[in-house]
C-alpha cells in the first residue's frame, strides 16, 4: 500500500468511525488487474480494500445521484471529479453540506488501452509508480513510461487539483496550460468541413448503442433519456447512421456548460469511439462566449440557464449568419 493510499484509508476510517459519513466512495482492487472498481465503504473495518492509483478510471461523482439527499457521502475526488460534484450540487442533485470531499491532486489517469497496446491484452498485474508503470504479463515484465500512457483527457486537463474539498491529501501538482483543450478544437476545425464530417461519421459508425458513455457520465442522470422516449420517438433506435449520429450529437450537446472534460465517457466506450473532441468544442465555446468553465464552483449558473440582451446575435435580416 502506498503512503497516499494509507492516508486516504485513514481518513475514510476516521469519517466512518466518527459517523461523519454514511458511505465513503473510493476505489478497491477489482478482479481484473487493469481496472480498479468503484467501492462503497460503509464500515470502517472494510476500508482495508481501498486502493488508489492511476488506473482508477471512473468518475466517482457518477454515483452521487444514486443516493438520497439526506445521505452523508464522503468521496475521493480528483480535479475533474470535484468539478463534476460542483456541477451536480449546482443542479441540486445533492446538498453540499451532506458531502465530504477527500481531494487528491491528480497525476493523470493511466489509459488501460494504451497498456494493452504496448504489452497485449494479457496483463497479470500493474504497478503505478511515480514516472513509470510496471506491467507484469505472461510474456514477462514491462516498464512503461507513465507520461505516454496518460488518457487523452488528462493530457489536456486544466484542473488537476481538486476544488472546494474538505480535506486534500497529497501535494498539489502543477496545472497545465489551460489552452490545450482549445488547441485541439482549433486544430480539428482547421481540417475543413468535409474532413470533419468524415471523421464524425467514422467515429459514430462504430457505436453499438450500449450507452456506456451515458452511464459513465456523472451529468447524464436524467430519469428518461431522449433516446428511450417513445412518444414522440426522437431518434432511430437501431445501429443506423441517423440513430448513431443523432445520439452522439445530442448526447454531447446536452452536456453544454455541464461537461467537466473528465473523459469518463471515452474511457468507458467499448468501441474506442472518440467523444471528448465533441464536448471539448462545447466547453471551448462556453469559455470563449461566456467565460464559463463548468464546475469551478457550485454557484455560477451555466450559460444555458441564462441569457443576455447583448448575446452574440445572428438573428439578422436576410439570414446572414455570424
Amino acid at each position: 500500500m502506498t503512503e497516499l493510499e494509507n492516508r486516504i484509508l485513514a481518513e475514510a476510517q476516521r469519517l466512518l468511525s466518527e459517523n461523519l459519513a454514511d458511505v465513503v466512495i473510493a476505489f478497491k482492487q477489482a478482479d481484473t488487474p487493469l481496472r480498479p472498481q468503484p467501492a462503497f465503504f460503509t464500515d470502517a473495518e472494510a476500508v482495508n480494500d481501498l486502493v488508489y492509483n492511476g488506473l482508477c478510471q471512473n468518475n466517482l461523482a457518477n454515483y452521487l445521484t444514486r443516493y438520497p439527499r439526506e445521505k452523508k457521502i464522503a468521496m475521493v475526488v480528483r480535479g475533474c471529479e470535484s468539478r463534476s460534484v460542483n456541477a451536480l450540487v449546482l443542479e441540486n442533485q445533492h446538498p453540499r453540506e451532506n458531502l465530504y470531499l477527500i481531494g487528491i491532486p491528480c497525476e493523470g489517469i493511466v489509459d488501460w488501452r494504451k497498456i494493452v497496446e504496448a504489452v497485449g491484452e494479457d496483463v497479470l498485474s500493474v504497478q503505478d509508480q511515480a514516472d513509470i508503470v510496471v506491467v507484469r504479463t505472461p510474456k514477462g515484465e514491462f516498464t512503461l513510461d507513465r507520461a505516454a500512457l496518460m488518457h487523452g483527457s488528462c493530457l489536456r486537463c486544466t484542473q488537476k487539483n481538486p476544488l472546494g474539498t474538505d480535506v486534500t491529501i497529497g501535494k498539489p501538482v502543477a496545472e497545465q496550460d489551460p489552452h490545450l483543450l482549445r488547441e485541439r478544437v482549433k486544430n480539428f476545425e482547421a481540417l475543413g468541413i468535409q474532413t470533419r464530417y468524415e471523421y464524425f461519421r467514422q467515429e459514430s459508425e462504430r457505436c453499438i448503442r450500449c450507452y456506456a458513455c451515458r452511464e459513465a457520465c456523472p451529468m447524464c442522470y436524467c430519469e428518461e433519456c431522449f433516446v428511450d422516449h417513445t412518444g414522440p420517438r426522437w431518434t432511430e433506435s437501431g445501429v443506423t447512421p441517423a440513430g448513431m449520429q443523432g445520439w452522439h450529437i445530442i448526447r454531447a450537446f446536452h452536456q453544454t456548460g455541464r461537461c467537466t472534460s473528465c473523459g469518463a465517457c471515452e474511457r468507458a466506450c467499448p468501441m474506442d469511439i472518440h467523444m471528448t473532441y465533441l464536448t471539448d468544442k462545447l466547453n471551448t465555446d462556453m469559455y470563449d462566449k461566456y467565460q464559463f468553465v463548468a464546475g469551478l464552483d457550485a454557484k455560477t449558473q451555466t450559460p444555458f440557464a441564462a441569457f443576455n440582451l447583448d448575446d452574440k446575435n445572428r438573428f439578422v435580416a436576410g439570414g446572414t449568419s455570424k
Binding site: Q37, R209, A212, A216, A268
Partner: peptide
C-alpha cells in the same frame, strides 16, 4: 458499482434479447 450500460450483454456471444420498433 455497475454502471447499467449494455457492454457486457451487447458484446456477449450468447445474449440474444431484442426489441421491436
Amino acid at each position: 458499482s455497475c454502471l447499467g450500460c449494455g457492454i457486457c450483454t451487447f458484446l456477449c456471444p450468447t445474449c440474444f434479447c431484442f426489441d421491436i420498433v
